[in-house]
């Protein structure tokens, strides 16, 4: 009998080929478009050739800047990563703490549940001026924007996940004589930690978005700062490598979180694939 489509799996080599195919097609499309535009106008900036992108990478990532003596890509990357990681850490701590206590305690849920639901739908970019005047234009407001952007999502996700804990588990802990504190610390928190990583991974995209938005508004360095500055002069030869670099960083951070989850909570990965 013919195998069903849902059971047919590509061999390893075919798999690699299929994974590479969309990227290769994208590159071919780019180079055709770029060649066509450069034939019309050799100075075209919209779709620069691979060699001018190469020059831009050389200039931004490996050569000291003439005016500042710094290597711009690294300056931008470290400035952005410090903001990004601080924002993620704070959002995780805040989100994990409030999410768990709100999900666990009916009184907290009664008072804060609706508040967090409302908070999570306020677009943080719309209240930026308030953020500036309260926190200033420096690093604090950029980190705060990331936290405000993703913490409400993490909180709501944690509340839902706490509610999903099988009631048998809670009842059992109580019949064994556990106090609220013991249940929280010994049952709920261990269950929630790997799920917190899940929530964090799902927030990464939004966190990048808020980081770049914050850097576009007022800054002296950062990946988003450079992209918006270069956009003023349509320097796509710099912007495209920066976008590729951001994509790589985001992918890498996501991968690190996945590995952390697998290493620290092997039981969770096992239960999921089950």
């Amino acid at each position: 009998m013919r195998q069903r489509l849902i059971n047919r799996r590509p061999e390893r080599r075919v798999g690699v080929f299929l994974a590479a195919l969309p990227f290769v097609l994208l590159l071919i499309a780019y180079s055709l478009g770029s060649d066509a535009r450069l034939a019309e106008n050799p100075s075209d900036k919209l779709l620069p050739s691979f060699s001018s992108i190469g020059d831009a990478i050389e200039r931004m990532a490996f050569t000291e800047n003439k005016r500042t003596g710094e290597i711009l890509l690294w300056v931008d990357t470290s400035a952005s990563l410090i903001r990004f990681v601080s924002g993620l850490l704070i959002a995780t701590l805040v989100g994990g703490f409030f999410g768990i206590i709100t999900g666990l305690l009916p009184y907290m849920r009664a008072s804060l549940g609706t508040f967090f639901s409302v908070l999570s739908v306020i677009p943080p970019l719309a209240i930026l001026p308030i953020l500036f005047i309260v926190l200033g234009l420096g690093e604090t407001s950029k980190i705060a924007l990331i936290v405000l952007g993703i913490a409400p999502f993490i909180i709501r996700d944690m509340i839902l996940r706490v509610e999903e804990i099988p009631s048998e588990l809670m009842v059992k802990a109580q019949t064994l004589g556990a106090s609220t504190w013991q249940i929280a610390w010994r049952v709920v928190v261990p269950q929630m930690l790997p799920r917190l990583i899940d929530a964090l991974r799902l927030s990464l995209g939004a966190a990048w978005l808020f980081l770049i938005a914050a850097e576009a508004i007022a800054s002296q360095s950062g990946l988003g700062y450079r992209i918006f500055l270069m956009r003023r002069y349509l320097s796509m030869d710099v912007i495209l490598p920066y976008v590729a670099w951001i994509t790589f960083l985001a992918f890498f951070i996501d991968w690190c979180l996945l590995k952390l989850q697998q290493k620290a909570f092997p039981w969770f990965a096992a239960s999921r694939s089950g």
């Binding site: 500036f132 234009l137 508004i217 007022a218 800054s219 002296q220 918006f228």
Partner: peptide, 12 residues
Amino acid sequence: VVNTSDADLVGA
């Protein structure tokens, strides 16, 4: 020099 978006200068 700090690059600041024109939309936010008055607030800044």
